[in-house]
Design a binder for these strands. Structure first.
Length: 553
RNA sequence: GCGCCCGUGGCUCAAUUGGAUAGAGCAUCAGACUUCGGAUCUGAGGGUUGCUGGUUCGAGUCCAGCCGGGCGCACCA
C-alpha cells in the first residue's frame, strides 16, 4: 500500500510540474510516508510538501494543496486525503482495505512478515562467560538479549548461528584452580593458602569438598590440573543448566584455545606487524593507535610474553569473518565498548569488512526490592545469581523484563513486580490477553459455537464496524513492520512494547463487547476470526521473546 | 583530566531514527459490567524533554558549550 501511495504522490508531483506550478520533477529522497502516531491524522502521512517547500519557495501548505488537487479522487482503498497541520498530506484508508488485510493475515502462516530474500547468514555471539562461576544477573540480560535478537532475525528469514566464546586457559582459570585446591585441602583438614584474589563463592567450596570425597588424600601431593579441570566441568554444567532453564541453546561453543593451537593468534600478530602497525618497546608489543585510528597505543603482547586479551579477540573476529557470515552480532556489556572499538579498528587496518560486525551494547542491571536496591558484589558471596533470579520470579518474567528496555539504557529489575500475579505485571497483562481468548473459545465451544474455517472473505468481515474492532485490525496489520524494525535495529524491546499495546487494545474490545450470547451470527463469526488473528500474533510475538503463551493461567 | 553512553510527569520507561498537541505503565484521585476469569475497562490531575545557544518549514532526537549520573581510560578478561 505504501508503494502504491508513493506512486500516486509521485504522479501528482509530475502533473504539478507539467502544469507549471512546481519545479521539482523527481520525488525527493527525504520524503517519508509513515503511520502517524495520532489516530486523527489518518493511516498514512506524507511530508512531501514540507520537504519540497524550500526548493519551491512556497509555503508547505500551498505545496500540499497543489499536490492534493492532483491526487486521485477518494475511492477504492483510499477514503480520504487531506492537508493538515504544517502541510502534511494525511491519507485515510477505507475499511474495505483493512478487512482485506485481516482476511489475508488469517490465512497467512507468516502473519504478513516478509522473509528476507536472500536471507543472510548471521552469527550471534553472546553470553561468552568464562567458566569461573555461575552466571550473574548481568549475564542474564546478555543471554536473553542475544537469544531474542537471534529469534527476531530468524523470524525475518535469516539463517542464524548462536555461538558461545570462552577461555579456559588464562590467568583467571589458574586462580580458579588454586581456589579449588585450597578448599580441597581445607576439606581434608590440611593447611591451605587461599589465593589473595581467589574466588570466594560457596560453589568453590562445594567443588573442593566433592574432590575431597572422591579422591581422599590423593591430590595432596604434587601439582594437579585436576582442580582446574573439575572446576571447569562443574561450572560449565551449572551454566548450561541455567541457560537450559531459560530455553537458551547454542550451535557452537568456541574455545579461545583453538586460536592458539591453529596459529591464528600468531598469524594475526605477524600480519599486523608486516603492515607496520606494531611497535616493540618496554618488553611488550604495542598496537599503534594512531595508525589504526585509535586514541592510544594498546598492548598486544605483554612483557611476560603472553598475549593480552585483545590479540586473540582480533584473531577470533578474523576467524568469524573467514567463516563467511554476512553479519556478525556481538552482544556486549557497556564495559566492553572500547574493546569492541579496538577490534574493529584492527580489523579495518587488516583489510577486513569490519562493518559486518555489529555490537549490541547493553547497560548494567540493578535489582530492586520494595524500592530498595539489592546489593550484588561478585567479590563476596552475597551476589544474586541468574539462577536465583529465575528461581524467584520464573522464566517468563525474567525474559520479559530483561527485554522490556532498550538495551543501551540501565535496567532496573523490580523483583516484587516481576512476581506479582496481577495487572501491574506487564508479563501477566500480555499473557492474560492470550489466555482470555483461549478461555472465550472454550466457553463458546460449550455453547456449540466454533470459529469459522479459515478462508473467510473480506466482505464476511465487513460487520466489524466498531471502533475497538478497527483499532484491533490496524494494530495487527502493523505487526510485520514492528518485527522488521526490531530485526533491522536488533532491538527486541520494540516487540515488548507492541505486545503490551496490542493486549491493551484487546482488553478494551473485550470489555466493551460481549461475544457470548450474541444473536447476530455473522458478527460473532467475524469477531472470532479477528480474535483468532489477535491470538496468533500474541503467541508469535511472545515466541520472539521466548516467553510462553498460556491457554490458561 | 580524556573518551563513550545516558539525563523525558513523583517512580520505571517509550517516542516509527528530524515530523504534527511528547506517549504508556506504576502511584494518586474519581468511576464502570447482576465477572464470555475484575489477572479487566473508563476518566482526571500531573511536563519549559538537565541548562544555554545554534542548525531549519519543524528538534526529545543533529551541532557547540556547560551541569549532573554511569562505564571505560591496566602489560585484567
Amino acid at each position: 500500500m505504501k508503494a502504491r501511495t508513493i506512486a500516486l504522490l509521485s504522479d501528482a508531483l509530475a502533473r504539478a510540474v507539467a502544469d507549471g506550478l512546481l519545479v521539482t520533477a523527481t520525488y525527493p529522497l527525504g520524503a517519508t510516508l509513515a503511520t502517524p502516531r495520532e489516530r486523527s491524522h489518518g493511516d498514512l502521512a506524507s511530508n512531501l510538501a514540507l520537504v519540497l517547500a524550500k526548493s519551491e519557495k512556497k509555503s508547505p501548505r500551498d505545496v500540499a494543496a497543489i499536490l492534493a488537487a492532483r491526487l486521485p479522487k477518494p475511492g477504492g482503498d483510499i477514503e480520504q486525503i487531506e492537508v493538515a497541520g504544517p502541510g502534511f498530506l494525511n491519507i485515510t484508508l477505507s475499511s474495505g482495505f483493512w478487512y482485506r488485510q485481516l482476511a489475508a493475515f488469517d490465512v497467512d502462516p507468516a502473519l504478513g512478515i516478509k522473509q528476507a530474500d536472500p536471507g543472510r547468514r548471521v552469527q550471534v555471539e553472546f553470553v561468552s562467560a568464562n567458566p569461573t562461576g555461575p552466571l550473574t544477573v548481568g549475564h542474564g540480560r546478555n543471554a536473553v538479549l542475544g537469544d531474542s535478537v537471534a529469534r527476531v532475525l530468524e523470524a525475518v528469514g535469516h539463517a542464524v548461528e548462536r555461538e558461545y566464546y570462552f577461555n579456559n586457559a588464562g590467568r583467571q582459570m589458574k586462580v580458579l584452580g588454586a581456589s579449588v585446591e585450597a578448599r580441597y585441602r581445607e576439606a581434608r583438614g590440611r593447611e591451605s593458602a587461599f589465593p589473595e584474589d581467589g574466588y570466594q563463592g560457596a560453589y568453590i567450596t562445594e567443588i573442593g569438598r566433592q574432590l575431597a570425597e572422591k579422591h581422599g588424600d590423593e591430590l595432596l601431593e604434587g601439582v594437579h590440573s585436576a582442580f582446574r579441570d573439575a572446576a571447569e566441568v562443574a561450572i560449565f554444567a551449572d551454566i548450561r543448566t541455567t541457560l537450559d532453564r531459560l530455553a537458551i541453546g547454542f550451535d557452537q561453543y568456541f574455545n579461545e584455545d583453538t586460536l592458539y593451537s591453529s596459529g591464528a593468534v600468531e598469524q594475526t600478530l605477524k600480519d599486523l606487524e608486516s603492515l607496520g602497525l606494531v611497535e616493540r618497546r618496554e618488553g611488550a608489543v604495542w598496537l599503534l593507535g594512531e595508525r589504526v585510528g585509535l586514541a592510544k597505543d594498546r598492548v598486544l603482547v605483554k612483557s611476560s610474553g603472553e598475549p593480552a586479551y585483545r590479540l586473540p579477540d582480533i584473531a577470533y573476529h578474523r576467524n568469524k569473518i573467514a567463516r563467511g557470515y554476512d553479519e556478525i552480532v556481538d552482544v556486549l556489556g557497556a564495559d566492553h565498548i572500547d574493546e569492541s572499538r579496538e577490534v574493529r579498528a584492527a580489523l579495518l587496518a587488516l583489510g577486513h569488512p569490519a562493518d559486518i560486525v555489529r555490537p549490541v551494547i547493553y547497560q548494567f542491571v540493578t535489582l530492586t526490592r520494595h524500592g530498595e536496591q539489592v546489593k550484588m558484589s561478585t567479590r563476596r558471596a552475597e551476589y544474586v545469581t541468574l539462577d536465583d533470579l529465575v528461581e524467584e520470579v520464573g522464566v517468563d518474567a525474567v525474559r520479559f523484563f530483561f527485554l522490556s528496555r532498550k538495551s543501551d539504557t540501565h535496567l532496573e529489575f523490580d523483583l516484587e513486580l516481576a512476581k506479582k500475579q496481577s495487572t501491574d505485571n506487564p508479563v501477566y497483562y500480555v499473557q492474560y490477553a492470550h489466555a482470555r481468548i483461549s478461555n472465550l473459545n472454550a466457553r463458546l465451544k460449550v455453547e456449540g459455537v466454533l470459529p469459522p474455517e479459515e478462508g473467510v472473505s473480506a466482505s464476511d468481515l465487513s460487520v466489524l464496524v466498531e471502533p475497538e474492532e478497527l483499532e484491533l485490525i490496524k494494530s495487527l496489520v502493523a505487526y510485520p513492520q514492528i518485527v522488521a524494525g526490531a530485526a533491522a535495529e536488533l532491538e527486541p524491546h520494540r516487540v515488548v512494547f507492541y505486545l503490551h499495546e496490542l493486549a491493551a487494545t484487546l482488553h478494551r474490545f473485550y470489555n466493551e463487547h460481549r461475544l457470548l450470547g450474541d444473536e447476530q451470527a455473522a458478527r460473532l463469526r467475524a469477531r472470532l476470526v479477528l480474535l483468532r488473528v489477535v491470538q496468533r500474533v500474541l503467541r508469535h510475538g511472545l515466541g520472539l521473546l521466548g516467553v510462553g503463551a498460556p491457554e490458561r493461567m
